[in-house]
Amino acid sequence: MSYFVGVDIGGTNVEMGILNELGEILIKKSIKTDSKKGAEDTFGRIWTAINSLITELGITKDDIKSIGMGIPGPVLNNSVVKIAANFSWGDNFPAKELMEKISGKPVKVGNDVKLIALGETLFGAGRGYKNSITIPIGTGIAAGIIINGAIVEGADGAAGEFGHVVVNKQGYKCGCGLTGCLETYCSATGIIREGKRRLAENKENALYRRINGSIDSLEARDIFDLAKAGDKFCMDIVDWFCEYMAEGIGMLLNILNPEIIIFSGGVARAGDILLDGVKKNLAKYALGMTMENLKFAFGELNEEAGIKGAAALVMNENK
């Protein structure tokens, strides 16, 4: 039997696992990224950790067919990270070349969001669909686009940067340099900012009491939890959030006409209140024909999405 390795490199931690041919994670491990020590140090420790998993699983290095790696930022040709924004490794970072040199195994590298989408296509909520869009909502927001079963990469690996469509030219300044990006509204960061803004104006509400008046401690789940309980103050914030989300998704529907939209990430755990809010507003922004047969779902891979998505990049060649 052949085995595959999935590696999800984040700014703080690296999650990795060994999968069988069915896409099941047999064993996994987490280490600190510590990117400031240099890429060779990080990648060397990743390979050391993989070797410990190989030993623990009772297989050999020869049983590992290939390694898939997910990393934030646009990736060219499953090889070079054009902008390694979360790390100190410089732009045009040759991730594939370095990991192949260290491991002696075939390696493919992909953008983390795109790989989550691929993972959902092969192993999760996107199974059976050729045209899907997976939208992880967390600190930021992006879109992993699958068309005719293949990831849409774009000329420079930047396809799917859905969080940076401008929805309000007089809006908030975004970290990307633009003003009024969707990400400044439809993300955990965005809804927390809006909650804080409203709390500064109105402290006579259940949300203020829930956080004991500590506005700086506000989290997205505080808002969603109270909205689900019927609190009017928080329901209004969620409606605001969902209106912007519907606008962004409407753009995607009109351009790509997918079969299914899959929500994943921390904010997606809010569940049906998010989905219902988007559906309520979507007809304002999307052509009717794009919504006729459209399905919505929540991601099924959850905390294993990064590992399975990375492995899916190399396993997809055999599907």
Results as ranks from 00 to 15, higher is better:
Y3Q: 09
F4I: 03
V5W: 00
G6H: 03
G6V: 04
V7M: 04
I9Q: 01
G10Y: 11
N13S: 04
E15V: 07
M16P: 06
G17V: 03
G17T: 06
G17D: 06
G17E: 10
I18G: 06
N20C: 13
L22F: 04
L22H: 05
K32C: 02
T33V: 02
D41C: 02
T42P: 10
T42V: 04
F43E: 09
G44R: 09
T48V: 11
A49W: 02
S52M: 00
L53M: 09
D62E: 15
D63W: 03
M69Y: 00
P72R: 12
P74D: 11
P74G: 04
L76H: 06
N78W: 13
S79Y: 05
V81E: 10
K82G: 01
A85D: 06
G90Y: 14
P94N: 12
P94S: 07
A95M: 09
E97W: 01
P106G: 05
K108L: 09
V109W: 00
A117M: 13
L122T: 06
F123I: 02
I137R: 08
G138A: 01
I145T: 12
N148V: 10
G149M: 14
V152C: 13
A155I: 13
A155Q: 15
A159M: 14
H164Q: 14
G175L: 10
C176Q: 14
G177Q: 07
G180M: 09
L182S: 02
T184N: 08
C186V: 11
S187Y: 12
T189F: 09
T189G: 05
T189D: 11
I191Y: 08
I191C: 04
I192E: 09
R193G: 12
E194M: 05
A200P: 00
K203Q: 09
K203T: 02
K203L: 00
E204F: 00
E204A: 07
Y208R: 11
I211C: 01
S217P: 02
A229R: 06
V238G: 10
C242H: 08
N254V: 05
G266V: 07
L275W: 01
G277D: 03
A283N: 11
A286H: 05
N293T: 10
N293C: 04
K295Y: 09
A297D: 15
A297G: 12
A297T: 13
E303T: 12
I307K: 08
A311L: 01
A312Q: 04
M315F: 00
N316V: 02
